[in-house]
Design a binder for these strands. Sequence first.
DNA 1: TTGTAAGCGTTATCAC
DNA 2: GTGATAACGCTTACAA
Lengths: 330, 330
Amino acid sequence: MKQKSTTPTMKDVAREAGVALGTVSKVFNNIPVGESYRQRVVEAAGKLGYQVNQYARGLKTNRTNTVALILPSVDHPFFGALAQQLCLALSRRSYRTLLYVTGSNPEVEQQCIRMVQQNKADGIIGLTYNPGLEVDEALPFVSIDRYFSPGVPCVASDNLGGGRLAAERLISLGCRHLAFFRNGPIQAGEADKRGDGFEQICRARGVSYEVIRINDEEQSLEVFRDYLIGHISNGKLDLDGIFCSTDLLALTIRGMLEELGQRVPEDVQLVGFDGIRQFGSEGCYCSTIVQPIAQLAQTSVDILLQEDRSALPSLICLPVAYAAGGTTRE
Amino acid sequence: MKQKSTTPTMKDVAREAGVALGTVSKVFNNIPVGESYRQRVVEAAGKLGYQVNQYARGLKTNRTNTVALILPSVDHPFFGALAQQLCLALSRRSYRTLLYVTGSNPEVEQQCIRMVQQNKADGIIGLTYNPGLEVDEALPFVSIDRYFSPGVPCVASDNLGGGRLAAERLISLGCRHLAFFRNGPIQAGEADKRGDGFEQICRARGVSYEVIRINDEEQSLEVFRDYLIGHISNGKLDLDGIFCSTDLLALTIRGMLEELGQRVPEDVQLVGFDGIRQFGSEGCYCSTIVQPIAQLAQTSVDILLQEDRSALPSLICLPVAYAAGGTTRE
DNA sequence: TTGTAAGCGTTATCAC
DNA sequence: GTGATAACGCTTACAA
């Protein structure tokens, strides 16, 4: 007995519409076809509930309308927001999003790239600090926040400019004794420029500053606490402004300062980096350099899907902006 | 040496290994084959860098090793963490994750489901409050936090138990005048039980309480503020404990209370719901009922991928736990 | 313009 | 166990 319970195929639509198989195909590929035929095909497809089988199509065309997203995580507010904007930007161009969460594990990251070569995606948008990652330049790849090589386009926020902006703002708000705090993995890609920009301005303006860079996530908080304690004498901190490499760090430092009896922003002003404030709540707020997440996502997608891949930029920096958030005296 | 510019195929491997095509296929499907043959195939595949083409395989088998995730967003800390755990749980079972962000738009949600029927995924894990969503019971679907019908398994936290737990804790911490605050969309699925559990305990213990449920996200904050102001006389709030339906709300209320000159937790204690504290920073912390996100994800995946789909549970509630976080007097 | 037929890379069915 | 061969559903020359 012929079990016709399977999903309808083009053949079924062709039979139903009384046209040839090729005609149905053309209709679904927007290839010009006689209007009367087109109508009959559309009607028949609707009646049968026909949907193109993307796997058969992909087999033929070697295009899958799918882009792989490789991210360290999505439970971090910045990465989560980025993933969301990327997903949205891709769906606007009728692309689906294959999500890979790597935990920054180099092995996992490399495996994801292999999977894409297995014909499962048309391109990759990746955020990875893995120094040894092998990226085939023939494979469409856009890197976010990490420069690989001239052949691999990198989209990033203007981290240098953001660092400069933070320093300028703190100085114009009256700070004269600054510090830059940074934690996170050693290979921090473009984000490392934040500190560079900060230093540039401090030197140019002749404002004293110190830089504390910690790579180990675990111990970093203790180091910062010790540093702060060492800079308190007679209950008074001899710093009046701190630029933190991320908002999360800024919020942590803020709590630490309050524990140490320092008032923010009265005694010391704080500026973070990222612009993650979807929490919307008073407690999770800080003055910050806002990354243009939506624009970052849109640009990455545009570059990845660009038809002409012969002359792609190797680095695009997008403008950041300062936003007050209660940890500065505005 | 004839270098084929295309990616190597099974045929190439067969030729290289000097075996038949079918033998190669068997090797890659773990079907018993002579060990000497197997070795030659593996070696040839390695040499050529052969990878199975999943699209061809999917065409043949109608299985894609892909699961679609339908979520309202991933920039919300709870959804982000959930997405991450789901992605991880799926990859543990060698499944890929297709991410759909819907913004709770019913049209988008319905379209995602259609896409899966287009043969692009083996199943769906969805978190949607869309009341009119049509879910084909033949299509593997697991719903998180929203009960659809007996044929559609739903995995959720024990929201009722969590609400009870919150009330019990607040009462045991000395509160005698309680309130429950809730905001968010009207169709809140299982999460609505949080308030029910809270009320159960309050009534059972004879503790006075009020319930404020707001559906509109925008106006809700004003309503809560007005409510609080109305309950302050002579600078003193006549409530000593508030249970909020989410951590985000709890943090907002906390900020609001501080603005109104009320101390948390000295004057009034606060308990939220979700357990989102990956921020790790002092400011973004509250006592809360923690949802077992990893377990939620693992259970959803296990149920979705269960071979025998004849006797699936229609609702699974996972245990929650209380965690102190500075907004209660412990 | 429309219809026909040859694959795309894999799996599955057979004889051997 | 092994090795040809026919699908799977679709695209795309090419023929009509």
